[in-house]
Amino acid sequence: MTHILFTISTAFMLGLTGLTFHRTHLLSALLCLEGMMLSLFIALAMWSTQNDMMIFSSSPLLLLALSACEAGLGLSLLVATSRTHGSDHLQNLNLLQC
């Protein structure tokens, strides 16, 4: 495993760990998701430069575009939840449990 891949994997796993184990605010969950996507962005960019694949040089931007959309959707859901549930605490999202 190269250093770059190790670093990127660690960054991704940290983001994922944060998403799964740190469940207080919806905002922090969204930030973790964004961190994961950014680490993937770097991974994709590094992959295409390392392998000299110029045809892939646009792919990090495609990823970034979609992850930006995703982040936007997440933020709009944040607004919607804080309007319906009063705050962005994840533990407030308990209407649907049985």
């Binding site: 991704f12 994922l16 998403l19 919806l26 969950a29 998701l33 994961m36 996507m37 993937l40 995703e70 959707l73 997440g74 859901l77 919607a80 939840t81 309007r83 319906t84 549930h85 999202l93 209407l95 649907l96």
Partner: peptide
């Protein structure tokens, strides 16, 4: 737009986004 729908959408979004990542 009612609380349960928003909650469902949030939960769906979080799992799907994480899975896609």
């Amino acid at each position: 737009h009612h609380p349960r729908a928003v909650e469902a959408a949030t939960k769906y979004f979080l799992t799907q986004a994480a899975a896609a990542a």
